Amino acid sequence: MNKKYQVFISSTYDDLKEEREQVIKAVLEMGHIPVGMEMFSAGDEEQWKLIARQIEQTDYYVIIVGHRYGSETEDGISYTEKEYDYASSLGVPTLGFVISDDASWPSSRIDKSDKKLKKLEAFKSKVKSKLVHFWESKDDLHGKVSISLMKTMNLNPRIGWVRATDAPTTEATQELVRLSAENSTLRKKIEGFKTIEQPDEEKRLVHILDDNTRKFKVRRKSDKGRWDDAEKVRNTLLEIFLMIAPTLVNESSSKTIAKEIAFEHVGNNWFRTWPIGDNKIKGMIADLVALDLVQPSKKKHSVNDKEEYWSLTKLGNSILKRARRIQLEEGIDTLEDKSEEDF
């Protein structure tokens, strides 16, 4: 069934109109359903029940934070923060996008009141307590929201929505149950006929990826990008593949791949211009291309866009879906296992 997800987009309004439009556009381009304050009267307390009901029906919640705290309720909390708290209390996956301190921004869209600024900083700290992304422009925000939503939807699928005509009828459900039982019986018979175990190509590739290690450096923002101070790290090709594969389901540029890997090691402290050497990234991608897991993206881009874009092959998608199970079955350490060795 073709499932669509409802994405609630929350932010202050007047100062972030263009940014909201870009996020709405990103959600629509992915084929999902954006919902936000455009549907409601933002400062009307009577509308809160309607807003709350929409959040309750939401699959994913996107919060965009700029330099304004926004209009407040009678309790002295902004409507934006009230929406965020309610979504968090329901366990709705929240994706935070906070404006970078380095981003240029018109002074007319910045709070001047010390009281407002204090509340804004407290709210930003609350949002940053979870994984967040920092953005510098509406176009930058568009790309980061698309990638983050794609990764989250892949790793944490939700209930979503389907067309009524796509939903199974009672008769169809009964037939599916019958066919499932028949399929199970046939599978058991086939297993009984098997005398030679067929080689598992996906398991073989996972072992090849796990047996090959790559050493590289990660430049941190706090080190001002100096390679001499960069953190020395090593990962297996399997770890690298699992770091970047969720974004490659759609497509990802070489530079974004570098940032995804850097994030796993230094969080949001990665240096914004090639936190990992261009030559190192090219080598990693070449290894994955050689194993038929990654291919040049077939999507069209502007002639002025000089970035190299990559996507998963059919085999790469299969490996992404099965890798975790193969690791468990074969006793291959995961990143989580290796992190626990530090304790």
Rank of each mutant, 00 (worst) to 15 (best):
F40N: 09
M150I: 15
D278Y: 06
S253H: 10
E231Y: 02
Q57G: 04
V162H: 09
E308A: 14
L291I: 09
K115T: 14
R324S: 06
E264K: 04
L291S: 10
D337N: 15
E340C: 09
I332S: 07
S78G: 03
S146Y: 07
V233P: 09
L149C: 01
F123Q: 10
E29M: 08
Q47L: 01
K49W: 03
E308L: 14
I110P: 01
E81T: 05
W105A: 08
E175C: 04
M150S: 14
Y79I: 00
N235K: 14
I9A: 00
S148N: 02
L315H: 01
F263V: 03
D111A: 03
T256M: 14
N269C: 06
D111H: 09
E121P: 07
E231N: 02
K259S: 05
E251M: 02
N279G: 14
D166F: 13
A262V: 02
L328E: 14
G277N: 15
Y5H: 08
A230N: 00
E239K: 10
S89D: 10
E340M: 13
S253G: 10
E202I: 15
V206G: 00
I281L: 00
I190F: 10
G43S: 06
W48H: 05
P246I: 08
L238G: 04
H32R: 08
L176P: 00
T313M: 03
Y69G: 03
E264Q: 07
E329S: 10
Q174P: 00
Q54L: 04
R325M: 08
F193P: 01
D333A: 07
K82I: 06
E136Y: 03
S302Q: 08
N269M: 05
D292H: 06
P246M: 07
P246Y: 05
Y79K: 00
T12P: 06
S137E: 02
L238Q: 05
T80Q: 09
G36A: 07
D139R: 09
A245D: 03
Q295H: 11
D287H: 10
K203M: 12
R178T: 08
L205D: 10
I77L: 12
T73Q: 02
E83S: 06
G66H: 04
L186G: 01
D305V: 07
P34W: 01
M153V: 02
P246E: 11
K194A: 10
A262T: 06
N154P: 04
E74K: 13
D211F: 01
T236C: 03
L291C: 05
S297N: 06
E307H: 13
L328T: 09
D200K: 12
I319L: 11
D75N: 13
M30F: 06
Q295K: 15
G76E: 04
E197M: 08
S89K: 11
V98N: 07
I77Q: 13
H265L: 05
D278H: 03
G192Q: 05
G43W: 01
I257A: 11
K128M: 15
G70S: 12
E329W: 11
A122D: 03
T256H: 14
